[in-house]
Simulated assay, not measured.
Amino acid sequence: MANAKPKNPYYQGPVTDHFDGTRFFNPGGIAPLGFRAMLRWQFNGERQTWQKQVPSPFPQAKPEERVEGDGLRVTMVGHASMLVQVAGLNILTDPVWSDRASPFGFAGPKRVTPPGIRFEDLPKIDLVLVSHNHYDHLDVATLKRLQAAHRPHFVTPLGNDTIIRRAAPDARISVMDWGGRIAISDGMNVDAEPAHHWSARGTGDRSMALWASFVISTPSGKIYHVGDTGFHDGINYRAVAKKHGAFRLAILPFGAYEPRWFMKGQHQNPDEAVRGMQLCNAAHVAGHHFATFQLTDEAMDAPVRALEAALREHGVTPERFRPLRAGEVFDVPLS
Rank of each mutant, 00 (worst) to 15 (best):
R238N: 10
R238L: 14
A239Q: 14
A239S: 11
K243L: 11
K243R: 15
H244F: 15
G245S: 09
G245R: 12
G245W: 13
F247R: 11
R248E: 06
L249W: 05
L249R: 07
L249F: 08
A250D: 01
P253V: 03
G255W: 03
A256W: 05
Y257F: 14
E258T: 13
R260H: 12
R260A: 12
R260S: 13
W261K: 15
W261F: 05
W261D: 02
M263R: 10
H267G: 06
H267W: 03
Q268K: 10
N269L: 04
P270I: 02
P270F: 01
D271Y: 11
E272S: 09
E272T: 10
E272G: 05
E272P: 07
A273D: 03
R275Y: 03
R275A: 09
R275L: 13
R275V: 09
Q278T: 02
L279W: 12
C280P: 00
C280I: 04
N281H: 14
A282F: 13
A283I: 03
A286I: 07
H289M: 13
F293P: 00
Q294G: 05
Q294C: 09
D297Q: 08
A299M: 06
D301K: 00
P303Y: 08
P303Q: 09
V304W: 04
R305S: 14
R305H: 13
E308H: 13
E308C: 05
A310V: 03
E313Q: 14
H314D: 01
H314S: 08
H314C: 04
G315P: 02
G315T: 04
V316G: 02
V316K: 09
P318M: 02
P318D: 01
E319C: 00
R320C: 00
F321M: 13
P323C: 12
R325Y: 13
R325T: 06
A326Y: 06
G327M: 01
D331H: 10
V332H: 01
